[in-house]
Design a protein around this nucleic acid. Structure first.
Length: 426
DNA sequence: TCTGGGGTCCTAGGACCC
DNA sequence: TCTGGGGTCCTAGGACCC
């Protein structure tokens, strides 16, 4: 029997999270902004209808926001992460295998439920998730992940589906593929969709049924992924539900500054902060790193004198020690820093991660590893209990507001993750 | 004036080795 | 003048995802 997949995807997730705790937002245009209140990252249907685009910079929208009374929120990742967990827990109760694909979507393996009416079954999931978490989800069902993605999009778009669409039914599938632009296929972005359209391939049905000469050209252009997309559109599964999360390959922490930064000392503080955050992530993954890359650049919207540099440092020993990583990052930063630039963003990457059980001792290692490990454990435990940033390295800069500190002027309370901000029933 | 952040995978090309 | 061939490893860049 061929497998059956479902893709459950939360509708306008961040906006929906805000609405759970503020029902007055229902039916109104609502947007959630990125860090530093920079651009739009989530929109309610009403905001989409106004023509507000994903990623639009908020300063361009100020007129529209006023005119239509758009409700605006800074992002509150603690809240969204917590809500996500609740949604995923609820979904897990309905299928044997579940793959949490992102903060707001999950694939379910429904192969064992073929004897059921899948649409009815998914409707039940949908109403349970809504009842237990307050979050609306849409669900697409199909024989491959790529088709389930398409089913999900149609379920969102067509009200008559009531949020659930099953494309294992042949007639529904052909119709859905004909209605899906190539640009809306999972794995096809703006570059490939431009190429396909130029070659007369406008929708998913045409891509699936392209002649062999054209198919070969497409495969050549799009590589192995292109070949897989075509197979999956034909109903031949190339991907399965991955139930165990794979260990991370790399960790990146980077931020855009509110105000551009010129001075090396300020950049060093910002960088030390990002390294601290990254090292914490590293330890949460029970991993250590062999290389560290630091990078910085000026505004990418000022192309004339755009400056970008990255420096990769091979560490003498594999490590997860914040202090040690801060030191190497600082040295790397000095190498790529150029005086006179107005920097807009900086960050650090750890690549070449190793599980911490496999760390080899360096021959000339002069750091006491056991002591370092103990220190890091204590640091993480304190910050977990007392709030992140309670214990920090002096290199990250002490109190006071730095120009690289982020602002969230329109943040909603952390209703679910902070005792002091739990909503009162009245 | 003001434009997010964190990932993965694939491919091409260079360096290097035998 | 003519200037092998194949394998591996690494890196940079492209493309995509949410």
């Amino acid at each position: 029997m061929p497998p059956v997949f479902a893709l459950a995807d939360c509708n306008n997730f961040y906006v929906s999270c805000e609405r759970v705790f503020n029902p007055k937002l229902e039916g109104k245009p609502v947007v959630v902004l990125s860090n530093n209140d920079g651009c739009v990252v989530s929109r309610s249907n009403e905001a989409k209808a106004l023509g507000i685009k994903m990623g639009a910079p908020v300063f361009e929208l100020s007129g529209m926001i006023k005119r239509h009374g758009v409700k605006v929120f800074s992002s509150n990742y603690a809240l969204y992460g917590d809500m996500s967990q609740r949604v995923m827990e609820t979904l897990s109760g309905f299928a044997e295998d579940i793959e949490i694909y992102s903060i707001d979507e999950a694939f379910l393996d429904l192969s064992g439920f073929r004897h059921e009416n899948l649409t009815d079954y998914m409707r039940r999931i949908r109403s349970d998730v809504k009842q237990w978490t307050g979050i609306p989800v849409s669900i697409g069902i199909a024989e491959t992940k790529t088709l389930a993605k398409i089913a999900n999009k149609m379920a969102k778009k067509i009200p008559e589906t009531e949020g659930v669409l099953d494309l294992t039914v042949l007639s529904a599938r052909e119709r859905a593929l004909a209605m899906t632009d190539v640009a809306d296929i999972w794995g096809i972005g703006s570059s490939y969709s431009g190429y396909l359209e130029k070659n007369g391939v406008k929708n998913a049905l045409q891509l699936r049924d392209a002649g062999s000469a054209l198919t070969n050209r497409i495969k050549h252009k799009m590589g192995i992924n292109g070949a897989r997309i075509i197979q999956e559109l034909k109903g031949v599964p190339c991907y399965s539900v991955e139930t165990c999360p794979q260990p991370k390959k790399g960790i990146t922490v980077s931020r855009t500054f509110r105000q551009p930064i010129e001075s090396l000392s300020e950049l060093k503080e910002a960088m030390a902060t990002y390294v601290s955050m990254g090292a914490e992530k590293l330890r949460r993954e029970n991993a250590a790193t062999r290389t560290l890359s630091v990078f910085l650049h000026t505004s990418r919207f000022k192309k004339e004198d755009f400056y970008y540099r990255i420096k990769t440092v091979d560490l003498p020993v594999t490590t997860m020690d914040t202090g040690e990583l801060i030191r190497y990052a600082g040295e790397g930063l000095e190498e790529i820093y150029r005086k006179g630039c107005m920097y807009k963003r900086a960050g650090v990457m750890f690549r070449d991660l190793l599980p911490d059980t496999r760390i080899q001792m360096g021959l000339f290692d002069c750091i006491n590893r056991r002591r370092s490990e103990k220190l890091m454990k204590t640091l993480d435990a304190v910050n977990l209990k007392m709030g992140s940033g309670t214990l920090a390295y002096a290199a990250t800069g002490l109190a006071g507001t730095r120009s690289w500190h982020m602002v969230f002027k329109k943040r909603s309370p952390s209703y679910t993750t902070d005792w002091n901000q739990i909503p009162a029933a009245s």
